[in-house]
Design a protein around this nucleic acid. Structure first.
Lengths: 263, 263
DNA sequence: TGTTATGATTTTACTTGTAAAGTCATAATA
DNA sequence: TATTATGACTTTACAAGTAAAATCATAACA
């Protein structure tokens, strides 16, 4: 009856709750992020958590505790919570009422939704960019394509992935629409971890580079509507490759992730 | 009625700062909003403020004080701030560091950006909806068009505006993509106040109804790509009408708004 | 008169505190 | 053994407090 056992947890070998307790590696990853000049604390927290999710350091399904994040990032809980609210409206994390935030699972259905959005926005960005880009800027695109070819020759798929993102992001920049910029940025960036996860399972992206060249050519020719169509089908093909690769792997969710052995 | 007793404000006839001090009408508008079943306070605040902005009760440029909102809505500052952060990422309000939130100004440049986004997303929604809608649902669209005709006959432009929104929103629903739904919802809804502001200055939307009919016909025929094109040019025309109307009026920003005489 | 300095006031930006709700281990019960 | 009850513990959801910064009115000064 009044055995009064373990009043304040005398940390024995008893299996703890393990609700979170991020590994030391992840903690250092989070706290060492270069959030250089950001003066506002919520913005710093936003960038740090987003970056960690993007690089699968915080794997899908992982719970994100505001107290723990606050401790790691060296701030109080409020700015962390603010950043989580923002990440939630963008789709990076999911709020389970009275339970907290978890990293959004990485499942085909979700990716499909993101792709449908990004395809459309990417397309319109290309259409607008075609009218608004200068010669200089188009040359910059060409430069990025050359870099991609180099990365492919060296079989550096990680570098290629980064360069591909840069290529598409640059086109969006050229559209000169900050709102479009913001939405595409947060949405398309959520595809990155799926690409990372399936990086060895997809065909070598030789064809992507060819398509990039074709897109640039049509931009140079000044045919906005053709650019839109090509970008859209380009994304569509990439989508299918990733979804197929994902199907051959276990869905990346809470249960299937071993937090200890993860990167 | 929460007719608070002006705590220590010696309210003489001295010209006060007037930084905010919302009129009684606006206060009651805000506090009487039907945020029925919403259990979470931040969600209630979000809906209330968004609704007030949408209906121009909180005019562009108006500063939104978290303390004041908290008082009006009967909650503390924390959930209000959370809702403002969300409204900021969606573009409804703008955060000026260390100064606070203001309702986003209603200027052509901004509207143009929103339209570019919505055109693309609306288009893809129509394309997807064409494959995914049932007969029942297409009939529902037809019903909405009939209502629009009635509203036009009675010259009820306000009702027509609502029905037009419903028509487009319904198509987005049919695309069955929650993420797309969320983005379009928050973006296209920001156009509403521009429509409200220019409501008497635009041509009678007879042509819109005709185009709606044509769009529905092509959906029935099952031609997704045609639906996309038509929706896009439909929005494009609407955009031009509104931007033209807006040009003939004073830009709606802080300085030009008389807070006392506003609705 | 026009410009600058100053201080009171307002408001955010962030910290901290707390009640309620949910979770999980353990015990009681069938 | 399987199921249910119980209670300590964790964590959010919200409230409230504080310091720093920006603003604005007024005064001092050229």
């Amino acid at each position: 009856m009044n055995n009064q056992k373990t009043p304040q947890t005398p940390d024995s070998n008893v299996k703890r709750r393990d609700q979170s307790e991020l590994s030391l590696a992840v903690r250092s990853f989070l706290s060492n992020l270069d959030v250089n000049g950001e003066s506002r604390l919520p913005q710093r927290a936003y960038l740090a958590v987003r970056h960690a999710i993007r690089h699968l350091q915080l794997p899908p399904g992982q719970t994100v505790l505001e107290r723990e994040m606050a401790e790691i990032l060296g701030m109080s809980r409020t700015p962390v919570r603010e950043s989580l609210v923002r990440l939630e409206t963008e789709g990076w994390v999911r709020l389970i009422p009275r339970r907290g935030f978890i990293v959004a699972p990485l499942v085909a259905d979700d990716l499909q939704q993101i792709y449908e959005v990004v395809e459309a926005l990417d397309g319109v960005a290309g259409r607008l960019a075609t009218g608004r880009a200068t010669h200089e800027e188009l040359n910059q695109l060409e430069h990025l394509i050359e870099e991609q070819e180099k990365a492919l020759e060296q079989n550096d798929l990680l570098a290629w992935t980064e360069l591909d993102e840069q290529f598409h992001n640059y086109i969006v920049d050229l559209a000169q629409n900050p709102r479009l910029r913001g939405i595409v940025d947060s949405q398309s960036d959520q595809l990155y971890r799926a690409r990372l996860y399936t990086i060895g399972l997809r065909p070598k992206p030789t064809r992507s580079v060819i398509e990039h060249k074709a897109i640039l050519a049509v931009m140079r020719a000044g045919e906005p509507e053709a650019v839109r169509t090509m970008l859209q089908s380009h994304r569509y093909r990439a989508r299918n490759e990733i979804l197929e690769a994902l199907q051959s792997m276990p869905p990346l969710q809470e249960e299937t992730v071993n937090k200890e052995t993860f990167p």
